[in-house]
Design a protein around this nucleic acid. Structure first.
Lengths: 159, 159
DNA sequence: GCCACTTCTATAAGTAGCTGATGTAAAACT
DNA sequence: AGTTTTACATCAGCTACTTATAGAAGTGGC
């Protein structure tokens, strides 16, 4: 299965070329978007809590694609920083429900605004056509992200 | 400076909406692209060595946007794993020149191929128009990445 | 109602990958 | 020759993960 066999005439080589420096691009995007104290996972989790409300540790674990201990530790850090809090579920006393705090919500809002400004500055040097292309592809990528099997099997690419 | 003030009619809200879940998207992209043992920085550095040839530690430090100790340590790990090697510069004996090894080159080639396949599988569910949009926006983002000030000042977004 | 089994979260120990502060050697001034 | 600058390495400390394991609470068979 190669790009060429599916991508139609002309699309293959372009795509391969862009893919070549994808890691570099990712790192630059990352630097562009996480200059405060939150890791990608921490930010994503906080956004999720803000958007969809309180959730169990196990739900967050599955959604964020980390191990359960990793999520427990992340929540501990968020709680220590006052951004989230643990609650108990009376119906099932094994469960820990995680909720965002007002401070956490503030941070999300500030991040969102800051990023929007930064993005807007960047997009000053981009034509309307290109901007439309970026918007479309972001939506497509989000769609794909949603349908992607959550666990990217490591075996799959090691060989 | 808001999105709305520059983005033209209709573009602003869309962009803000996509930006909202940008962290989540980034994490998914990252999971999609680094399932082997390389960190983003390690992969980027290796790609750079493969693409542009041997370079000094200080050059790599500047290019990758990490601290000099961080790069020294990264090179030590790459060297330990047989992916890169240190050489000395006879003209200036303070300098350490880093080069990719055949094993490192192999890994880069394998990663590139694996990612291309994965991407191709993903793009199976994407229309030609959308695919064209993705290609265009990747090129635009790369262009922007190139012109972006390398050091994203942390002060800028903490407040 | 007890036992085994499963589910949910936490803890422990280890590693990668960064940081700032500092050390050391070689080169470049003056 | 002595001082300063440059290039890289080392050290201590932190975050953010991993696997393995523990422990407590719910579930079903009998």
């Amino acid at each position: 299965m190669t790009i060429r066999s599916e991508a139609g005439p002309g699309a293959g080589p372009d795509l391969l070329r862009t893919v070549t420096s994808f890691d570099r691009l990712l790192r630059l995007l990352r630097r562009l978007t996480t200059p405060d104290g939150l890791s990608l996972t921490a930010a994503s989790t906080l956004y999720r809590l803000e958007e969809f409300g309180a959730q169990r540790v196990s739900e967050l674990t599955a959604a964020e694609g980390v191990t359960q201990p990793g999520m427990t530790q992340l929540i501990t850090r968020l709680e220590r920083d006052g951004l989230a809090e643990r609650r108990s579920d009376p119906a099932d006393r094994r469960v820990v429900v995680v909720a965002i705090t007002p401070a956490g919500r503030d941070l999300v809002v500030r991040r969102r605004r800051a990023r929007a400004e930064k993005l807007s500055a960047l997009l000053a040097g981009v034509s309307a056509d290109e901007r439309a292309a970026i918007e479309l592809s972001l939506r497509v990528l989000e769609r794909l992200a949603g349908t992607t099997p959550t666990a990217t099997d490591p075996e799959e690419m090691t060989g």
